[in-house]
Design a protein around this nucleic acid. Structure first.
Lengths: 239, 239
DNA sequence: CCTTTTATAGTCTGAGTGACTATTAAGGGG
DNA sequence: CCCCTTAATAGTCACTCAGACTATAAAAGG
């Protein structure tokens, strides 16, 4: 930040990359685009693009999110900076510094190919491997972060539509964590956390199939979970 | 990431900024440099600098950390990416994208002015306001992040020397959180967490002053705290 | 020797969670 | 129509853990 006149400095290309996650048919999916040209032609990649001259990374990310998903309104969607990837050589053509973001979507709309994307498609997380550039790592970091944030934040509702059942909310946790949760205990925990969810007053109910209809809830005003909803304890993982 | 040939793109200057934190005399301190030239001449700022052409942000941050602290070996220090700041206009001269890092130091060594820093000094966190650029916000974000990570990681030992007493470790929590903790309870919790700390075998003890000498501990192999050591519950803060 | 100071040990209680069982309210098939 | 299945919701029990304490141990100082 100091001494611009004492150091020569290299200009860098700056991009944003988006790990757009959603839940589809009970499985975690990620939005990918197929590359039309070298390098990595024909390979899948995270959507993204260059920062415009008068745009912050956050604005660029939301612009790209709208372009790639084809959604008219992306203002309500959860979009969060993940981290920045700057290894020299991560792009074979030139020095590119990429600010990665994670976006969470409730309902999976059909993706709309952006102006510079050959094709955009929802791909199950487990099949999203061998991506271009260092996008495998970015995607893994995004999933890791989301899984961790489910523990101590109310982020899970970002995967749900405006009104949802507690069973749907529980499925978010189970899908992202890959573990089964006890339904009564989950319910007790969620309802005991003030501001996490609030019941839809009209005693509305939803028929998903056979069983007893479930009450509907909306996301509440809270953003943090105190105390947290912990995953199965495991041994020391990188902090 | 796609279509480099279809979009023109702006070159950006990319820097790293460091929030170097330590505990000195029971208070949180941050390493600041005094700016020698416009803009913000005479104001304090976080240390930082440009990425070299063949250097990742992480490498640049560690290089700057060594330069600014004057320490011969900074390999063991905790250094972690915080987030990237990219608002247009955050630097009045040009478009600068800055990758911010947080570094934690055990013992506060006398800072050594780097080649491009007029002066470097440890400043109490509470007096570090009115910094140049958006460094007030970066510093606040760093403190927020560190405080949160103390809850669910073993990060606190990064503030301590190689061997420390449980009282010193507790002071880390109390200083960063600004709350008092019950000593027996803190001790019970830390010792019950496997891998957090391990006793120095030689029954070594340290005399800090009058009272009973305290046993010495080293940082253990664990990095995560399960279950976490929670702060006083408060209402929904931004996740 | 007694007081002060700090570390360490131990106790008690209530909140929160995991593992269950029971009940309610729907649909479907004979 | 009755029974079976399915899924939501209610409730129980025991164990763990954290907060609030009290008690003891080991040093320094007067």
């Amino acid at each position: 930040m100091l001494g611009y006149d004492k150091h020569a400095f290299e200009p860098f290309a700056v991009t944003v990359d988006l790990a757009v996650l959603t839940l589809r048919a009970g499985a975690l999916h990620v939005l990918l685009v197929e590359r039309g040209q070298e390098p990595y032609a024909g390979r899948w990649a995270l959507p993204g693009g260059f920062l415009l001259p008068e745009e912050s990374a956050e604005r660029a990310a939301r612009r790209e999110l709208a372009e790639e998903t084809g959604l008219a309104d992306v203002t309500g969607l959860h979009l969060e900076q993940l981290r920045t990837y700057s290894e020299p050589g991560r792009d074979p053509r030139m020095r590119v510094v990429s600010v990665a973001f994670t976006a969470l979507l409730p309902d999976p709309p059909e993706p709309h190919a952006g102006t510079d994307a050959a094709e955009a498609r929802w791909v199950p997380y487990d099949k999203a491997q061998g991506l271009a550039f260092d996008h495998d790592r970015i995607l893994a970091d995004a999933r890791e972060r989301v899984g961790a944030k489910l523990e101590y934040s109310c982020l899970a509702t970002a995967f749900c539509p405006a009104e949802f059942t507690l069973g749907e909310l529980q499925q978010v946790y189970e899908t992202v964590w890959g573990t089964a949760l006890d339904r009564p205990n989950f319910r007790r925990k969620v309802l005991a956390t003030p501001g996490f969810v609030e019941a839809v007053p009209g005693a509305a109910r939803l028929t998903g199939g056979r069983g007893k209809p479930a009450a509907l809830y909306r996301a509440g005003p809270a953003t943090a979970l105190h105390p947290p909803l912990l995953r199965t304890p495991r041994e020391g993982r990188p902090a």
